[in-house]
Amino acid sequence: MNFEFFFNNLPELTITGLAFGAIYALIALGYTMVYGVLQLINFAHSEVFMYGTFATLWTVIALNAADANGVKLIAILIVALFASMALSALIALALERVAYRRLIERDAPRLIALISAIGASFVLAELMGLRDRIAGWFGLDDDLSEYVGKARINNSMAGTLEKPRFDVGGVSISSIDIIVIVAAVGMMVLLDQFVRRSRLGKGIRATAQDPETASLMGVNPTRTIQVTFLIGGLMAGVAAFLYMLKIDTTKYDVGFLLGVKAFTAAVLGGIGNLRGALLGGLVLGVAENWGQALFGGEWRDVIAFVLLVLILLVRPTGLLGESLGKARA
């Protein structure tokens, strides 16, 4: 174990870990909110995130961000953020419509919906991984080569962004990490307030707790479920954009590990609990990064899941443990 490296770099390791954790947390929201309302794990949520990373990448390519700087670059990045949120939200809404709605309306067992989720996840991932072929059917593969190329390997926007680091009391901090943490935590606070205070948010909480009684209050369950998927999609879109700022690279199967990690974060914090998702994400991100420094990078995922098991042994309902419906005002 590399204690010397660990202790010498503790602040940097923590900040990088928090940045990863913030991204996990944003994705975790989608899992946790849908679970809160439907008691269903939307395993296709990882693909909602994956499509967001591509929306970011393609916007950056299409608007030629590599040659831009200053205000123009910021404008392009804002467009990329919105594109990512829009595509992720669209995919999330399509999932609800195609993979779930009829099953839910007919009261299908949750296991059936789970199979539907896994199926939808593969279809979405493979559509992205086979986009060169699909474009080929329509003779578009040459015209769109920048977008459909390298369908099954890494696609990168590395070098588009300068990522200045600055020094605070001898600790070198990446500006991107700070942007990621501030943006993610800001989004979570906004969402938390929305769910607690707004009329629609109360409708979501009421449906999470007791859908039948909520409908007696005038809450339309289908609309509520749609809004829940929409919010999950928007948050995954933000996560995808921030992920691309930090990592630069994506691939058709990037959702898998990120999705599993985010799901872990949601369970760690207490599934169904919004603040739990944030806490779970941050704890997971930091623990992974610390563990990686101590034991080596290949242990990263092992540490994440050992941590999950240990925490669930002590607190079976997760760190914060309450559900969306029971969340206090």
Binding site: R199, K202, A206, Q209, T213, M217, G218, R328
Partner: peptide, 19 residues
């Protein structure tokens, strides 16, 4: 009864006025 047990009394009453 089926009150929304995680919400406050005020929030429950607000739910009653949802429409």
């Amino acid at each position: 009864r089926r009150c929304f047990i995680g919400m406050t009394v005020r929030e429950n009453l607000e739910m009653g006025a949802f429409t």
